[in-house]
Design a protein around this nucleic acid. Structure first.
Lengths: 351, 351
DNA sequence: CTGTTAGCGCTTTCAC
DNA sequence: GTGAAAGCGCTAACAG
C-alpha cells in the first residue's frame, strides 16, 4: 500500500511542500504568497489561507536552500581585528544601522590581527556566499588577499586605510588628525615632544605619525624618538614605550602623542609611576575619543574618530557595489580635535 | 548543434561538476576525493589528480548547497547584548578557541538589550540553519523564546543567568561575588554602604545584589537605598545614580558597590565632582575586572569575571548538545575578588 | 492567478 | 573504486 509520505518529519521542519499539501495548492504558489516581493501575484484569499497555514505549521524559510537559487544570502560580513577594542563598536553599529534597512543581517568575525586568520576568514565567507565583505582589519600585507576577494564579491576596506587596492576604502583623515595634535602642542608652547607609535603595518598609525611630524617640523618643535613601536596598540604597549623613554632619554618631553587612547592611558600610568603629573609635568594626547576618555582623571585630550559614520558609509558603499553600481568612490571623513584636561599651556602651574 | 555547456560561467565559480569534466570523472568521485572524511575511499592517484584540478580551477565548496544535504552549517552563533561592553570580548574568545578545534566558525550578533531583536535574531539564525546558539544576552522576559529555540537547535544560555529554562546555563556565581564585596567592606570597618543597582531584568545584577545584602545584614552593616536602578549598566548610569544619592541622601555612605566596572567609573567621576576623594572619603568596588580597571587612578577594586572560561565552557556544552549527548549539565564558575586602590580601611587617612 | 517542470551545487544511496 | 540517479528546499521559467 502506498500512503502519503509523512513530510512533517523532514530535517528542517515544515517546508513549502508541507504547506502546499496542507492547503491543497502547489509549492510555487506557496512560495510566491510568502515572498513579499511577489505576494501580489496571488489571490488575496489564497494568500491569507497560505499565511494562516504557514503560521499554524510554524513554517520557517530555509535560507541556504533559497540562496542556492537566488545567489544571495542577505548576509554581509564585517571582519574586525579585535572586538575588545572599543573603537570598533560604533563602526559595527553604523554598518548594522545601514544594512538593516535592506533586510540584511551583518555577521561579525575577528582576526586578532593575524593575516592568516583574515585570509581563512575571507575564504570561508566566500564559501558561505556572503553578499559583501567589509574589512576593518586590513594590514599592509593583506592587500593581495583583499584585492582578490574584491574580484569575487563586493568588498570594501574600512576604518583602517590601505594603499594599492582597487576596492573602495572608507576611512577618515588620519594625517589631518595627527596634524591637529601637533598644532595643539605647538600652540600650547611645547618645545620638545614625542610620539608613541602604533604598529606600522596599520596605515592609520603611519599617517597619524606623518601628519604629526610634518607640523612639528614646520612649527620648529623638537621631536624625540623612542626607536620602537607598539606591537599592538594596547594599554600595555603604551606603558612599555613610555617606560622605555624614561629609561633611555637624556631629556624628557613635555608633551606625548600616543597613537590611540588605550596607549595614552598606559602612558599616563607609566608617567605617574615615574612620579610625574599630568598635565603639570607632561601633557598627553590620545586618539579616537573612546567612551571612557572623558571620565578619566584628568580627562583625555584626543581626536574624535567618527566610527558610526565610517561604518554607515562603508555599508552604503558595499550596498552600492552589490547593486552593481559602477564607479563607486572611496570616502574620507574628517577628524575632530577634542581638547580636554590632559594637555595644558607650558608654564601653567595650576593643579 | 549541441556544444558542451560552458560550466565555468556558473553563479558561484567552479563546481564539482566542472572539476569532474576537467579530469574526466564523475562528480561523486570528486566529492569524495575532496572530503577529508571520505577521501580514503578513492584511489590515491585519482585523488591527487582531483586535488590538482581543484587547486588549478580555484574551486571553493559551496557551503549552503552542502548544508542542504548534510543538515549542518558548521556555524555557531553567539548573541551578545552589547559588543561595546569589554566584558563580552573574553567570552567570545573563549567560544572561538573551543569551536575552532572542530572546524566551526562562530558568528556574532548583537541585540542592544532589545528582546524583540533577540527574538528576530534567533528566528533568523534558525532559518540560516546554524548548528547551535549561545546566548549571552538573556533577560528575564526572554525565557520563552529561548526555551523554544532550545527545542529546535542546541542552545545554551551563558554569562547572563536565566531561571526557569531547560537549556543548559553556563555562568559564574554572581551571588558569591556580591558576598565577597560585602565581606570586604565589612572587614574594612565600613558601617554605612550603598549599592548602585544594575538593571533588574538581568539576573546577574539581581544575584549580586542579593549576595551583597545578605552579608551586609549578617555583618550588621547599614545599607542605604537609592530606590532606583540603572537602565543600562553604563558609565553614565553609574554617574547618574551616584549623583542622585548625593542629592537625596541625608547621610553619605563610606563605601559604594557598583554592579559593574563601568558604573563604578561613572560613580567615581560623580564622587570627585562632588568634591570627595576616593578612597579617602568613599571606597568604591566595581565588578567584572575589565581591562582598564587596573590602570585607573586609583586602581579599581573589583571581582574578576572569568569571561574566557565561561565562553569556553559554553562552547563545550553547545558542542556536546550538538553531538547528541544526553543529560548535559549547567556550569557555574567561581568569582575571584581583586582588592585594589579604590577601597580602604575606615579611619585610614593616608592619601 | 496557479501549476508544472527544471535545476541551483552538493552528498548519498545503490549499482557495478 | 567509481558512476548514475535521486533529492535536500527553494525559486524561476513557462504554460495554461
Amino acid at each position: 500500500m502506498h500512503t502519503t509520505p509523512n513530510r512533517t518529519q523532514t530535517r528542517f521542519g515544515p517546508t513549502l511542500a508541507d504547506i502546499a499539501d496542507d492547503v491543497g495548492l502547489s509549492s510555487s504558489t506557496v512560495s510566491r504568497a510568502l515572498d513579499p516581493r511577489r505576494s501580489l501575484m496571488v489571490n488575496t484569499k489564497t494568500r491569507e489561507l497560505i499565511a494562516e497555514a504557514a503560521e499554524r505549521l510554524g513554517y520557517r524559510p530555509h535560507l541556504p536552500a533559497r540562496s542556492l537559487m537566488t545567489g544571495r544570502t542577505q548576509t554581509i560580513v564585517v571582519i574586525a581585528a579585535d572586538l575588545g577594542n572599543p573603537w570598533v563598536t560604533p563602526i559595527l553599529h553604523g554598518v548594522a544601522s545601514r544594512v538593516a534597512v535592506d533586510g540584511i543581517v551583518p555577521i561579525i568575525a575577528e582576526t586578532n590581527n593575524d593575516s592568516h586568520v583574515l585570509a581563512e576568514l575571507i575564504n570561508h565567507m566566500l564559501a558561505r556566499g556572503v553578499d559583501a565583505i567589509i574589512i576593518l582589519a586590513a594590514q599592509r600585507q593583506d592587500a593581495e588577499v583583499i584585492e582578490s576577494a574584491g574580484r569575487i564579491v563586493p568588498t570594501v576596506v574600512a576604518a583602517r586605510n590601505l594603499l594599492g587596492v582597487s576596492v573602495p576604502v572608507v576611512t577618515h583623515d588620519d594625517r589631518r588628525g595627527g596634524e591637529m595634535v601637533a598644532e595643539h602642542f605647538a600652540d600650547l608652547g611645547h618645545k620638545l615632544v614625542v610620539q608613541l607609535l602604533g604598529p606600522s603595518d596599520v596605515m592609520n598609525f603611519l599617517l597619524r605619525s606623518e601628519g604629526f611630524s610634518t607640523v612639528v617640523k614646520r612649527r620648529r618643535v623638537r621631536q624625540l624618538s623612542i626607536r620602537d613601536e607598539a606591537v599592538q596598540p594596547t594599554l600595555e604597549e603604551g606603558s612599555r614605550l613610555m617606560t622605555k623613554l624614561f629609561d633611555s632619554a637624556s631629556e624628557l618631553p613635555t608633551a606625548v602623542f600616543a597613537h590611540n587612547d588605550a596607549m595614552a592611558i598606559g602612558a599616563m600610568a607609566a608617567i605617574r609611576e615615574h612620579g610625574l603629573g599630568i598635565p603639570e609635568d607632561i601633557s598627553v594626547s590620545g586618539y579616537n575619543d573612546m567612551p571612557l576618555t572623558e571620565f578619566l582623571a584628568p580627562s583625555l585630550t584626543t581626536v574624535h574618530y567618527p566610527g558610526w559614520e565610517v561604518g554607515h558609509a562603508a555599508a552604503e558603499v558595499a550596498l552600492r557595489l552589490l547593486a552593481g553600481e559602477q564607479g563607486v568612490e572611496s570616502v574620507c571623513l574628517d577628524p575632530v580635535f577634542i581638547p580636554r584636561g590632559s594637555t595644558r599651556q607650558m608654564g601653567d602651574q595650576r593643579r
